[in-house]
Design a protein around this nucleic acid. Structure first.
Lengths: 235, 235
DNA sequence: ACAAAAATATGATAAATTTCATGTTTTCAA
DNA sequence: TTGAAAACATGAAATTTATCATATTTTTGT
């Protein structure tokens, strides 16, 4: 069994400058540090549950997270991903509504929890942080609109291609051009709203078309321009 | 030709207390009034265009608006609706990104335009307004997530039923239980991401099943519980 | 009021996608 | 290590949904 990692500190947190907390004064950082809690999560652990209330936000110190809803037939729908430096749970906290989605780790992760009172204090005292949150929310809303249009209008093959590119942008490629995230075929299906079998078949097609290379859950992007217009390949 | 209506004033605006501007002090309302512009739009007029920059937000004094994107095949996708008292364009303004969607009137409408400088001034000076915007954005984000799951997982018949209920909640029913918005079959199709013919067929089905009554673009909801679980009607 | 255009309607067919069945491979816990 | 469970894979059939063709009705501009 792995040992629990040391409690990370915001002051020395490597992902702080990439995060929404980047412009915060050193005094306030100390406040956050003092009020926060920090936990290690194994792969697949649920962080919070759709429908519950939330009393703070989680900041991802390390790891990868999926945010998902359960549809009416009990099927998981992945809404978005989060990684090191990202925050999750802020939507429900700020709207003061129940959580609209659940979150679970995709690999071993370390998350810090910052209580509501602290967040609201910073929001009040720090116009810069406040504005960052407005920007974050409105950016996310734009992304969501694009997802809606794609889900409504694009066929499954294109949606899969899109989501591979989205995963590339979110988690980046390693030196071998592998997407730096390992998802099951079922999870891929749950991003684009299709059957697992369809994803399996389409990944094979993409491989045959030399657009990607597949080795287990490792997906290598060989021809990114090709993926951006998969519908026209045989035009 | 109809006469242009009088310039409305925020101070006497009937929809202000229902809007995001409801808690604003009288002095600030006067400032908004002084900086705003106001215009009448005919049915079907475009208010702003996806991809452009925006320099303020529009507040709907009167009328009904659709917000939509154009998909890769040129097909319209309706993202959301707005009505009297709602604001539009705030997403692009706050994210400082280009507009992610276009807006057009669904009927004759009057809209006020409040310039960016004024909005940012209120955001800075008025924590209450600021917090209202955070709430609005995060609420919208929750709605978007639910739309994503529905589009990804529900069959067309259920999506149409859902969207009729959404339209009911947004625009309400008149005394005759008619939904207070008149959309073409094509527009209904563009909400749920399906073909116009499918909407036509399904509306007939709903009518035959006594769930709704249809007379042109007037849709009367006869059996709302039935619509909430259209998939199980014949179970 | 009238012609043209747009919207609505419906059937037949085609295409996309899911479901089901079944087999193989991989993963994981005892 | 091994046996069970989960994940992956593939074909065939069924289902859903889109497309095409065509007719009718409604709306709109002149």
């Amino acid at each position: 069994m792995k040992k629990k990692p040391e409690m990370p500190h915001c002051e020395t947190c490597g992902s702080r400058d990439k995060s929404v907390f980047c412009g915060i004064a050193s005094g306030e950082i100390k406040d956050i540090d003092a009020s926060k809690g920090c936990n290690f999560y194994n792969k697949g652990q649920v962080i919070f549950h759709e429908g519950n209330r939330i009393s703070g936000i989680y900041c991802i110190n390390k790891g990868k997270i999926k945010i998902f809803q359960i549809g009416s037939e009990g099927k998981e729908q992945i809404i978005r991903f989060a990684k090191e430096g990202d925050i999750i749970g802020y939507r429900a906290l700020l709207s003061e509504e129940p959580l609209s989605a659940s979150a679970a780790t995709l690999e071993e992760s370390t998350l810090c929890f910052i209580p509501k009172s602290q967040i609201f204090k910073i929001l009040q005292d720090n116009p810069n942080f406040n504005f960052k949150m407005l920007k974050l929310l409105s950016h996310e809303l734009g992304e969501a609109a694009r997802v809606i249009t794609d889900l409504a209008q694009k066929p499954v093959r294109e949606r899969l291609a899109e989501s591979l590119l989205l995963l590339k942008d979110t988690f980046e490629l390693d030196d071998d051009k592998n997407i730096q995230i390992k998802l099951s075929r079922e999870e891929l299906a749950n991003i684009i709203g299709t059957a697992t079998e369809s994803v399996i078949r389409l990944l094979s097609e993409f491989k045959k078309d030399k657009l990607i290379d597949v080795d287990g859950r490792n997906i290598k992007l060989l021809n990114i321009p090709g993926l951006t217009r998969t519908a026209n390949i045989f035009d």
